[in-house]
Computed example of a mutant assay.
Amino acid sequence: MLLKPASLPGLLCFLLLPSFSCSCPSRCLCFRTTVRCMHLMLETIPDIPPQTSILDLRFNHIKEIQPGAFRRLKNLNTLLLNNNQIKHIVRRSFEDLENLKYLFLHNNKISRIHPGTFSQLESLKRLRLDSNALLCDCDLMWLAELLKEYAEQGSSIQTAATCEAPRELHGRSIITLTAQEFNCERPRITSEPHDVDVLLGNTVYFTCRAEGNPKPAIIWLHNNNEIDMKDDNRLNLLQDGTLMIQNTKESDKGVYQCMAKNIAGEVKTQEVVLRYFGTPCN
């Protein structure tokens, strides 16, 4: 039986890539579970077969990694993204890659990396971030702490990450920097809340302002439990850190405390009390 010419590509795909679903990206080279897409002037990450264990995207023009770009690649072991034009690593760039061992990101233009970017990489053995444009300010201190944690635990993870800026830290290994060199500043409270007596159904404001570097997040506690504003639309955190409670009710009574927190530390205000002295007149 003679095969028609149109059927030959499918036969070749079946013979050469028995473990793939014959979905090799255009112009890439695929063999078994290895996908190589080097020197193709790619600007975005192509669709990759889910069985891929080695993905080589070196020497392209990739500028960003979309969140979840590699989510389907449960078997990915090696990811080579070096020698591209990546500027920022955003949140969830490498999520669900629990089998990834080798991540190469050197020779890019990376200046910012979102905190926690590598926290899900449970199998990581080697991470390269050298030869980038890393800005070693307080926003990157989390990475230094992570790399130090690897070293202190006697981890076999090999890492490389160096500062590009500021000028006084140029060329320094991130793992050698102190909190002072990152120019981090612990939060400090500049305006404290005060006790409040209120009529049921009225609106209450608890003031809290804080400074620090980076700008601290404001968290409110009620009876030592963190308040989740999403649980009750009567509660609002204003832009300046003030807690607003509308249409107050009996369950709002108790002790309130403000906490200001950033990567350099946290600080709490004095505890204050919300009390009721009656119900509003009709």
Rank of each mutant, 00 (worst) to 15 (best):
Ser111Arg: 13
Leu124Cys: 05
Cys136Ala: 02
Leu146Asn: 01
Ala144Asp: 10
Asp137Ser: 15
Lys125Tyr: 04
Asp139Glu: 13
Ser119Thr: 12
Gly116Gln: 06
Leu135Thr: 15
Asn132Tyr: 05
Asp96Ile: 02
Phe104Leu: 12
Ser131His: 13
Ser119Asn: 14
Asp137Gln: 13
Asn132Trp: 00
Leu135Ile: 08
Asn108Ser: 00
Ser111Met: 07
Glu95Ala: 04
Leu129Trp: 08
Met141Leu: 09
Tyr102Asn: 12
Leu134Gly: 14
Pro115Leu: 15
Leu135Met: 11
Ile89Arg: 02
Thr117Ile: 00
Leu129Cys: 03
Val90Leu: 10
Leu140Asp: 01
Glu95Val: 07
Asn99Pro: 00
Leu129Thr: 00
Lys87Asp: 00
Asn107Val: 03
Lys109Thr: 00
Asn99Asp: 09
Arg128Val: 01
Tyr102Leu: 12
His114Gly: 06
Phe104Tyr: 13
Glu98Gln: 09
Lys87Ser: 06
Leu97Pro: 09
Phe104Arg: 09
Ala144Phe: 08
Ser93Tyr: 02
Gln120Gly: 14
Arg128Gly: 09
Ile110Arg: 02
Phe94Asp: 04
Gly116Glu: 07
Asn99His: 15
His88Cys: 02
Lys87Arg: 11
Glu122Tyr: 13
Asp130Met: 03
Cys138Phe: 12
Pro115Met: 08
Ser131Lys: 08
Cys138Glu: 01
Arg112Val: 05
Asp139Thr: 14
Leu124Glu: 03
Lys101Val: 00
Ser123Gly: 06
Tyr102Val: 14
His106Phe: 08
Pro115Lys: 12
His88Gly: 02
Arg126Met: 11
Thr117Trp: 10
Leu105Thr: 08
Gln120Thr: 07
Ser131Leu: 05
Leu97Thr: 04
His114Gln: 15
His88Met: 12
Asn132Pro: 09
Leu140Gln: 11
Leu129Pro: 10
Leu124Trp: 12
Leu121Ala: 12
Leu134Ser: 04
Asn108Ile: 03
Phe104Gly: 08
Ile89Tyr: 08
Phe94Met: 02
Ile113Met: 09
Lys125Gly: 09
Leu97Gln: 06
Trp142Ala: 03
Arg112Gly: 01
Arg128Asn: 04
Asp130His: 13
Ser93Ile: 00
Tyr102Gly: 03
Leu143Ser: 13
Glu95Leu: 10
His88Lys: 11
Ser123His: 04
Ile89Ser: 11
Met141Phe: 15
Leu140Ala: 05
Arg112Cys: 08
Phe104Met: 09
Arg112Thr: 10
Lys109Met: 11
Leu121Arg: 08
Asp139Asn: 14
Thr117Pro: 07
Thr117Asn: 10
Lys101His: 14
Arg126Ile: 08
His106Ile: 00
Asp139Pro: 07
Arg91Asp: 04
Thr117Met: 01
Leu129Gly: 02
Leu140Cys: 05
Asp137Glu: 15
Leu140His: 02
Arg126Phe: 03
Ala133His: 13
Glu95Phe: 06
Leu146Asp: 10
Asp96Phe: 12
Leu135Phe: 13
Gln120Ala: 11
Phe94Val: 01
Leu127Phe: 13
Leu121Tyr: 11
Trp142His: 08
Leu146Ser: 11
